[in-house]
């Protein structure tokens, strides 16, 4: 059942990418999407979560929050790069996350990369993330988690769990 949904989504993506209605392109897209769905169609998403509308509302809010953080991150990088003395104190810190599913952890790591001054380096199985921080304020695990992770974790928990 989920595979049909994946097929429809990937076919819409193909239509947007080619943007023509000639029959040979439509046929090629159908074959490619069918193969992709058959090979990569295994995921662990529960079906009932796809039917809850409040998750989509939180996801829309999350996109806007991420864009705002991304803009702040760019201004931060511009300040650090153009300053003659380059005010950086880099280091790799360790933070903890309470998210369980792979999809949520991937989103969290990607979001951390787009926020001001942080870049995720590795994630362990028991829920620790290693983060390269361009301006280290604290080396404590709990305090660093408060500063970096919690903003996104609250919303991601409502979207994915």
């Amino acid at each position: 059942m989920l595979r049909v949904l994946y097929f429809i989504v990937s076919y819409i993506f193909w239509l947007l990418m080619t943007l023509s209605l000639e029959w040979d392109r439509l046929a090629a897209g159908a074959v490619v999407c069918l193969l992709t769905t058959m090979i990569f169609g295994k995921t662990s998403i529960q079906k009932h979560k796809l039917l809850q509308p409040q998750r989509y509302c939180w996801a829309a809010y999350y996109v806007f929050l991420l864009l705002w953080e991304c803009l702040k991150a760019n201004l931060d990088v511009a300040y650090r790069v153009l300053h003659p003395a380059m005010p950086i104190h880099p280091g790799i810190v360790k933070v903890r996350t309470s998210l369980k599913s792979d999809l949520a952890r991937t989103s969290l790591a990607n979001s951390i990369t787009m926020t001001p001054g942080t870049l995720s380096v590795d994630v362990t199985d028991d829920g620790y993330l290693y983060i390269h921080w361009i301006n280290v304020k604290t080396q404590d695990v709990e305090e660093a988690s408060q500063k970096i992770v919690v903003v996104f974790e609250k919303i991601l928990k409502r979207i994915f769990e």
């Binding site: 991150a73 760019n74 990088v77 511009a78 880099p90 990369t113 001054g117 390269h132």
Partner: peptide, 29 residues
């Protein structure tokens, strides 16, 4: 303009992780 800032960061910052950080953020946006 942001891509210019990112590539200035790629040239000026001291090590690989800082360069990666500045360049990825600025060039993506």
């Amino acid at each position: 303009l942001f891509e210019l800032f990112g590539c200035i960061g790629l040239l000026r910052l001291p090590d690989m992780y800082n360069r990666l950080q500045a360049a990825t953020k600025c060039v993506t946006l």
